[in-house]
Write a protein that binds this DNA or RNA. Structure first.
Lengths: 236, 236
DNA sequence: GCATATTTGTCCGTATGTATA
DNA sequence: CTATACATACGGACAAATATG
């Protein structure tokens, strides 16, 4: 039996086993784990025991180990030799690095724009999703929508490799958010700015959007670094 | 320790099997294959048959498959479900994407510099290695030195994730070089420019270096795209 | 510090599904 | 259509390292 019984929705793996599955089992398992990590079901720092997951998902150890490899390379898991795999726990340095990259990539993608870009629709949808999530007080979804918005910004650069990079960057960022105490306080204040950036892009003002974005990202970084410092103070 | 016997001989992995290796067997195997691919021993488009490599290296299929996973994620191999793994054969679009990223990252790393950076020594060494390789007419090494030089430039940004990204980008670039007919004609002309860029950095003129770099990369991209077009014309 | 149980690392043989000659 | 070769996934085995008492 290959059904995960979680609180909300079980994920069936056998659904397309036997049929012509487009993906391998290891990748499907990796998808499941990735989702669980993104949701915070496996919090940063926790260990993923082979035996448990093998039993729960009804797969072999070798297959699971391949999934672990995939996720380790995405920096979502850290693999310690002979000790096991753990959900990564990011340091302040990591946060700084993530934001350095976001500033570089997102601004570079937006700045050259001189006319309303093709990807604008996607951005609008993300912004509206964020507004709606905030109104319904679903803060987890607000964070997701916000990430989609910025992923859309990076995608304006139209580079598949950059898109890949940023997908990883944002997945790591989710790990940061999970150690943050109050997702509402963090995400809510940026809703207005998202609208402003879209407005700039709407009139083809890429440079203006990039400037807004740079300030935006500096603010967010500062807030996160402070939160991390507080957490460190609590720990001591 | 992994000993590679350069010319013909297979690779001795069993030397440290049983001992406490710092890295896993799969990673060591991946290292070997990565080197082979970089050297052109496995040319782009060729298939890597499981049983051959298993036999040559004296490892198990599962271990090799883990290595394949690693290299597939680095975009050096393409993994076609139920068909096997192949050394990637890059398209013109790939070349354009690679250079778009190089321009973005390398220039962004260099431009903010206002004083002679710490990584200058590494750059000098790469440049001198290139000069020496050219004098000895070792064109393969010239290409390697050139890549090290640009890796050093990207490293000025001091971001571990960017370093990772660029390591992958340059590994892919090597695949492009392997389909190029004449490595000498391609690499030799850039030796002088490397010196010019170092000179700019030497006086803390990051902006000047970035401007040189942008022209440099545009030229190199154009040359490669043209060579690809020629090759496509020959094939038809 | 020591002996134990648990967990991971590595590898094999095999059954099944899939593509190609 | 059959035969062959190969990839996928599984279960089991044993060694090595770690955690536990």
């Amino acid at each position: 039996m290959v059904v995960i019984t979680a609180d909300d929705g079980p994920v069936g793996l056998e659904a397309d086993r036997g049929l012509l599955g487009r993906t391998s089992t290891a990748e499907r398992v990796a998808d499941v784990l990735r989702t669980r990590i993104a949701e915070g079901y496996f919090p940063p720092g926790s260990r993923l025991a082979e035996h448990e997951i093998v039993e729960k998902l009804g797969i072999s150890r070798n297959t699971l180990r391949e999934s672990f490899r995939l996720l380790t390379h995405e920096r979502l898991l850290s693999h310690e030799l002979n000790r096991g795999v753990f959900v990564r726990l990011l340091s302040v340095d990591d946060v700084v690095d993530l934001y350095r990259i976001r500033k570089m990539i997102e601004c570079a993608a937006v700045r050259p724009i001189t006319a309303p870009p093709a990807g604008l629709r996607r951005l609008r949808i993300a912004v509206l999703d964020g507004d709606q999530a905030a109104r319904s007080q679903r803060w987890q979804e607000l964070g997701t929508a916000n990430i989609h918005f910025h992923q859309g910004l990076a995608a304006l650069g139209e580079s598949p490799r950059i898109d890949d990079l940023m997908q990883g960057i944002f997945a790591e960022l989710r790990l940061v958010f999970h150690v943050m105490a109050d997702p509402r306080r963090f995400h809510e204040r940026y809703l207005v700015r998202n609208h402003e950036i879209v407005a700039k892009l709407d009139v083809g003002d890429g440079a203006g959007a990039a400037d807004l974005l740079a300030v935006y990202l500096d603010d967010a970084e500062r807030q996160l670094v402070e939160a991390y410092a507080e957490r460190a103070a609590e720990d001591s």
